[in-house]
C-alpha cells in the first residue's frame, strides 16, 4: 500500500492503494469514480482517457503515483468545471454528444468526450480531419463516428454562434439548428422526416433525399 496525494476534479485527496496500481484502478476502485472505463488490456481503446493537466492520457497506462502533483480531470469533473468557470446548463460538449446521437452504448463516451474537450480547448476551430485525428485513439464500436464528429462540430458552432451543418438524413429541417430559447432539447423537426408527401418539405433542396421521388 502506498498513500497517494492526487488532485482529481479540483479536489486534493489522499488515497491508499497498492503501489503498482494504475490511475484507472485508483479512480475506479478506490475513489468510486467509475466514469472512466476499462475496455481493453492496456492502451488500445481509449475508454479510460482522463485529462492530466488538460492533456488526454490513458489512465490504464499511467501508474497512479506518477499522477501526483498534476491536475486530473475525469468525466465526472467536466460539468462541475464548466459551472465553476461560470458556464450555465450542461457542458456544451456533453450536451452536443447527447443531442447528436454521438453516444449509443456510452461505454466509449467518457474517453471520447474528454478527448474532444481537450481538442477544443487547444484548437478553437478544428477541421473535420483534425477532429478525426484527435479522436483516433478512442474506439467506438456503435456509432460509426460520423455522429461523433457532428457533435464536436455542433459544440464548436455553439461556441462561435455559427449555424451547425445539417445531417444528410434530415434534408428538410436541421435537427441541430438553434432554437430561440438556446438549445432546449432536441426535437428533430417533424418536417425533416415525416411520412412523405413525396417532396422534401423545404422544397428548396434538389438533392435526392429519400423523399424526393
Amino acid at each position: 500500500m502506498r498513500v497517494l496525494n492526487l488532485t482529481v476534479n479540483g479536489d486534493a485527496t489522499e488515497v491508499a492503494a497498492p503501489a503498482h496500481w494504475t490511475l484507472l484502478e485508483v479512480l475506479r476502485y478506490r475513489m468510486g469514480l467509475t466514469g472512466s472505463k476499462q475496455g481493453c488490456d492496456k492502451g488500445d481503446c481509449g475508454a479510460c482517457t482522463v485529462l492530466i493537466d488538460g492533456e488526454p492520457q490513458l489512465s490504464c497506462l499511467t501508474v497512479a503515483a506518477l499522477a501526483e502533483g498534476h491536475e486530473i480531470t475525469t468525466i465526472e469533473g467536466l460539468l462541475p468545471a464548466h459551472l465553476r468557470a461560470g458556464g450555465e446548463g450542461p457542458d456544451p460538449v456533453q450536451e452536443a454528444f447527447d443531442r447528436c446521437g454521438a453516444l449509443q452504448c456510452g461505454f466509449c463516451q467518457p474517453g471520447m468526450i474528454l478527448s474532444a474537450r481537450a481538442l477544443l480547448s487547444e484548437n478553437p476551430a478544428p477541421t473535420r480531419d483534425e477532429i478525426k485525428a484527435a479522436l483516433s485513439g478512442n474506439l467506438c464500436r456503435c456509432t460509426g463516428y460520423t455522429q461523433i464528429y457532428q457533435a464536436v462540430e455542433l459544440a464548436l458552432a455553439e461556441a462561435t454562434g455559427a449555424e451547425p451543418a445539417s445531417p444528410s438524413w434530415a434534408p428538410g429541417e436541421n435537427p441541430w439548428a438553434k432554437t430561440p430559447e438556446g438549445n432546449a432539447r432536441p426535437a428533430v423537426g417533424a418536417a425533416g422526416l415525416t411520412e412523405g408527401t413525396g417532396v422534401a418539405p423545404s422544397g428548396g433542396d434538389s438533392r435526392t433525399n429519400g423523399k424526393a421521388h
Binding site: T34, L79, P90, G106, Q109, P175, E195
Partner: peptide, 28 residues
C-alpha cells in the same frame, strides 16, 4: 393514427447520465 412523438428525436433516456459518466455498468 399519427401522434406527435414518432418522427422526432427526443433526448435518449440514458443520455444525460452517460455523458456525465454516471451511468453504472456491471463493473461499476
Amino acid at each position: 393514427d399519427h401522434g406527435r412523438m414518432v418522427g422526432t428525436s427526443p433526448a435518449r433516456t440514458d443520455g444525460a447520465q452517460k455523458v456525465r459518466g454516471l451511468c453504472r455498468y456491471v463493473d461499476d
